[in-house]
Simulated assay, not measured.
Amino acid sequence: MNRTRSLASAALAAATALALSSCAVNEMGLDDSGSTLDGYIVGAGSSAQGAAQQAWVAGFQNAHGGVTVDYDPSGSGAGRDTFMEGASDFAGSDRAYTPDELEEGRFGRCAPDSTVIELPLYISPIAVVFRLDGIEALNLDAATIAAIFAGDITEWDDPEIAAANPGVALPDLPITAVHRSDDSGTTENFTEYLNAAAPDVWEWEADGVWPFPGGEAAQGNSGVVDTVGNGVGTIGYADASRVGDLGTVAVRVGEEFVPFSPEAAAAIVDASPIEEDRAEGDLAIAIDRTSEQAGVYPIVLVSYLIACEQYASPENVEVVKEYLAYIASEEGQQAAADGAGSAPISESLRERAMQAIESIGA
């Protein structure tokens, strides 16, 4: 009986100590993760960032148990509109705002006359994907890719395709080209490549909206991949993280054909300059789509995290800053690489991004 009373007393003392400890933690504003940060922020935009955002949200919320981050992968155009309308704290976009958009735009949650910061924190190749039974890879140059999507090359055994793929048994089969139905940064990056690298074939300027009728349209990266995968003789373009078991194209760069990879995507970004005449925290990159540097992959998507430099309200500003800082960190970039196959940014780009994030206030 004495031993039982002793055990009971010890259990009561332990429970009391735990309760007092919990009270002390609560009074300090700490959550189970040991973080004092709390709040709720909303982002929307790039579907290409979807898998990376899932990894970022999980890692950030694990470190800050009092924070909730919601991200809607509604597409880049929708994300930019949502941010301008003031319905989100940050946006994901597969292109930066144009100078005209920045000059004319009023960003709902930003302070009057505030600039926006645009951080290229998600770098991924855009894969040209196809479905042909028994063929897993093809070589194509820019002019041939442009002619296929423009509808000028309509059969898989076309001489232009055959010339780049000796020994490959190309089928006598019609080509069905699949493009995005929504306003998409992936489309804008893809059409920018076609216009820059094959201007004699691709007459349209870069645009997030597919420039002409024809072919087959699908919503989002996942829609394009599903449509290509469920067809026969289909070809499309999508963020490389969504490729799965589809066939993929190696793109001609100089005298070689370069398959997509995170390393090749990072190489073209490091070889390209920051756009001129931008605010200090606006890190929009002018991708050199016609580079002939060895080992670069020119059909690359540089996707941005966009925020106000100065918010109209201080509410959740620290959460936005900490979330963007996590994304830019080595840990955040590795989480995206593991979860989405993206290319980690370089150390020099990380330093510039961190400086821009530090400038955020209210």
Rank of each mutant, 00 (worst) to 15 (best):
Y323P: 09
T186N: 03
N195M: 10
D245C: 09
A240K: 04
S21C: 09
A17E: 00
A10N: 09
I306Q: 01
Y193C: 03
P166C: 06
G86W: 03
D338K: 07
C308E: 09
D38A: 13
A286Y: 13
N189T: 10
Y97F: 13
A335I: 00
A91V: 12
T68N: 03
V253L: 11
T234Q: 05
S359Y: 06
A250T: 09
R278G: 11
W202I: 00
T187N: 13
Q61P: 03
G341E: 14
F107T: 14
D200I: 02
T191S: 08
E85C: 02
A55V: 01
A143L: 02
A137K: 15
T191I: 04
S241D: 15
D183H: 13
V258M: 12
L170Y: 07
A127D: 07
Y323D: 05
A362H: 15
E192K: 15
Q219W: 07
G77E: 04
L173Q: 15
R350G: 08
G92D: 10
V300L: 02
A343N: 13
W156R: 00
D89T: 11
S88W: 11
D32E: 12
L194M: 11
R180V: 04
K321D: 10
E27P: 12
T4V: 05
S47K: 04
R131I: 00
A164W: 05
M1F: 05
V269M: 13
I145C: 00
H64F: 02
N316A: 05
S9F: 06
L301F: 04
N195A: 14
F130L: 01
V228I: 03
A218G: 08
A162K: 05
V249H: 04
Y326N: 08
R131T: 02
A14L: 09
E256G: 13
V319Y: 03
P213Q: 09
L20C: 10
E104R: 15
R80D: 10
A356S: 06
G229V: 00
S74L: 03
P120Q: 06
E309G: 01
V320T: 07
D277R: 14
E216I: 01
E276S: 14
A147Y: 01
S346N: 12
G66D: 08
V178E: 06
G244F: 10
V42N: 14
